[in-house]
Design a protein around this nucleic acid. Structure first.
Lengths: 106, 106
DNA sequence: TGAACGTATGAACAGATATTCATGTATTGT
DNA sequence: ACAATACATGAATATCTGTTCATACGTTCA
């Protein structure tokens, strides 16, 4: 059996990249946003729907969604007077899965 | 080609788990901690060494290391008057890799 | 056109967080 | 025993962050 190799960062991490990484994880560092993103994992949702699911006011949800949009974690699609939000890519859920492994594995 | 399936959370996310997830990501949401953890990825380091590498005071590093210890992201090994820190498991670097994919992929 | 609806936005406030500074504790060397 | 070293800790402070509240904007319906 081969030795289990590390993920191997191999290279140095410059300040800018460290900040970008931190910013990304920062978007996932709040329970409300985690629940919003999780709710989006099952498909598009509009703001009111999200607000109801996560138990927040629409305003609070809207504020958080803006942040998620800016970090390209969620994207918006306008339809009439509603705005449907969706995950922008699969990375978020992958991060959640990894995170859950750590949390559950204590 | 088969349809690319989602990571599929499948189940609901209770508040406690959402908070735990958020707490984990919160530990990775600061540039200083990111750099500390990254420095640890190449092996054990003592506090002074870390402080020098990331350009922080030993006190500041020590404060952050406590947090990382409490969240089981880093562990300490005392040797004489030095304390060597190391990553507590591989999950962190896996999360960093995924995070970098997102950051670099825009 | 006017009212109702869905969402966004800005200001304000409360709570969280990172760093600094001063000090404390344990260990080593003389 | 004393001084120096390595690290930890608590308090204080400045900054950041999430929510609320009031309000504004765009859309639909009557």
């Amino acid at each position: 059996m081969a030795t289990r190799s590390r993920p191997a960062p191999s290279t140095a991490l410059d300040d800018a990249t460290a900040s970008q990484l931190a910013q990304l994880f920062s978007a996932l560092s709040d329970p409300s946003r985690v629940r919003i993103l999780w709710a989006l994992s099952s498909g598009e949702r509009n703001v009111g729907d999200l607000a109801q699911r996560v138990g927040m006011t629409e305003s609070a949800v809207s504020h958080q969604l803006r942040q998620l949009r800016q970090l390209r974690l969620a994207r918006a699609r306008k339809a009439g007077r509603e705005v449907f939000y969706a995950l922008d890519d699969e990375h978020v859920m992958e991060l959640f899965q990894r995170g859950l492994e750590h949390v559950r594995h204590r």
